[in-house]
Simulated scan of single mutants.
Amino acid sequence: MSAVETFNALPAERLREQLLACLAAPAWGATIAAERPFADRAGIVAAADRVARVLSWDDILQGLSAHPRIGERAAGDSTEAAWSRAEQSAAARSADDGTKAALIAANRAYEERFGHVFLIFASGRSQAEILAAARERLGNDEVTERAIVAEELRKIAGLRLERVLDAL
């Protein structure tokens, strides 16, 4: 059975768990699940991308709630926690103590300014790059930052969905 056939045939609860591990916004997963069956992998990925682009801010905040602070190790043995650790692992290896401390301070300042964790698509980025982005984004207004957060969350969900499909 192909990954697409398996995805289409997954019991609703198992699919819900898989999709929540990609993006902890139930509305995102429910919409994708309701669109089954998909003809091909591209259709699944396109649906996930389309749905992520129209999430409400409340849905995005739900998604953010499952993400640890950048630079902090995600706790637990869930799929989501393991993915988060993997996504941040290269960045963690590339940081010196000064950069790590500066990132902690930037995280704190960001949370005070915007009221939620700083989110960035960390895969392939060093902590110095992440720190520079955090400092830059601190200058954004609320509307601009919300759009960036939504885009970063969409990219993370897309990467994680690809992982789900690869594992089926």
Rank of each mutant, 00 (worst) to 15 (best):
V45S: 01
D49Y: 05
A46E: 13
A42I: 00
A34Q: 07
A12W: 12
A105K: 15
A157V: 04
T79Y: 11
D141E: 11
A48F: 01
E145I: 07
D40F: 07
K100D: 11
G63C: 00
D49C: 01
M1H: 10
V143S: 11
A66G: 10
L159M: 12
E80L: 05
E111Y: 13
S78L: 03
L161N: 03
L165A: 01
E152K: 10
V149Q: 05
G29R: 05
E145L: 02
P26H: 00
A157E: 08
T31A: 02
R16S: 08
E145F: 08
A150P: 11
E111R: 11
G63T: 05
A46F: 09
G139M: 04
Q88W: 06
R14T: 03
V117L: 07
A75C: 10
A81C: 07
A82S: 12
E162M: 04
T6W: 11
L61E: 12
W83T: 00
A52M: 08
R154N: 09
E80A: 02
A25N: 05
E17C: 06
T79C: 02
S126N: 08
I130N: 00
A102W: 15
V4T: 14
S126P: 14
G124P: 13
I148G: 01
R14K: 11
F121P: 13
L19M: 12
L103D: 02
